[in-house]
Design a protein around this nucleic acid. Structure first.
Lengths: 166, 166
DNA sequence: CGGCGGAACTACGTCGATGTGGTTGCATGC
DNA sequence: GCATGCAACCACATCGACGTAGTTCCGCCG
């Protein structure tokens, strides 16, 4: 737990090292407005998986996985994809995002999405599908996220292994 | 030109064979609402290249190229891409769409877009770019468009060579 | 030449995705 | 334990992309 010995320093650490990012920091790191983050939480797109809001005055707490998901969403929005489509995609995808996302590509065709590794698979999909394929290399997303974390809040390690036992 | 001998039949042909599609038919073929077509014309996304509107009561006339462009746009919208992004893309792309579009892929990265043929080129783009790539095989778009034309209005040949001399 | 049909035009409403501004309410500093 | 700050909450306002309804006008037909 947290000892009362050190006081303030310990509190700061427990907030960040636990993997908990406040709403404001989350928005800052991901590169979206707080209003967007708030709206997305209320409309069930991305809820903070550590601590959800419980009325006025409470504080949301986002995990590193949440940040990754949010950054993917922001990247899709920057690519000009509608939020409604993003909602459909993540409804289907949320389960599989926990995997080792390091070197996979997120491929979206219409409302269905897949995780693909080899480039040749992607070519097959392009030949076969008659709609639009959206391809997003997740490695770049993770890199950008980690870079933003260490730049804005150097005190917290970006990886999931930052959750440390005392 | 058109002989008065046959009457109504001839008039119908002169409207369609010239390559001119009315607003209503265009919307029907492309699969969008007339209101969308109208809105897009007013806001300068796709204007009818044969005859533009000239006040109330006039008639727009769209070319086959226009239909192709509209169908590409509709496909992008169906893929969940925002109209604003489509606007940016076509601002840059309009010149190059006249080419033989049969077996090319439209690749969009952010706000810039390219026409690509080989699949390997696409893989290179995926490896290099750190954003989202939107890939659209134009052959399928043209196929779907032609199919819709012959299904809805069998009297007119879909290709650009349908413009026939007497 | 006067009615008629269809398509362009206009006005207004709507809906999603926020921005702005103000209010409430924990949680801590003092 | 009270003031204070920050963050969640709420009530609007906005803006793009249309939908709906009604009006205007051109072209044809009798």
């Amino acid at each position: 737990m947290h000892w009362t010995g050190d006081g303030s320093r310990v509190v700061v650490m427990t907030q960040q090292v636990q993997g908990g990012f406040s709403g404001k920091k989350t928005a800052e790191i991901v590169g979206i407005s707080y209003r967007q983050l708030d709206y997305w939480a209320r409309t069930d797109l991305v809820r903070p998986s550590l601590v959800d809001a419980a009325g006025s005055g409470s504080r949301r707490s986002y995990s590193y996985q949440d940040l990754l998901e949010l950054k993917v969403i922001k990247t899709l929005l920057d690519a000009g994809i509608r939020l409604e489509t993003v909602r459909d995609i993540f409804g289907y995808l949320r389960n599989e995002l926990d995997e080792d996302v390091a070197s996979a590509n997120l491929v979206i065709s219409g409302t269905t999405s897949v995780l693909v590794r080899s480039g040749e698979e992607i070519i097959d999909l392009i030949q076969g599908g008659q709609g639009v394929l959206n391809v997003l290399p997740l490695a770049g997303v993770k890199q950008g996220l980690d870079a933003a974390i260490v730049e804005l809040f150097p005190t917290v390690e970006p990886g999931a292994d930052a959750a440390v036992g005392g």
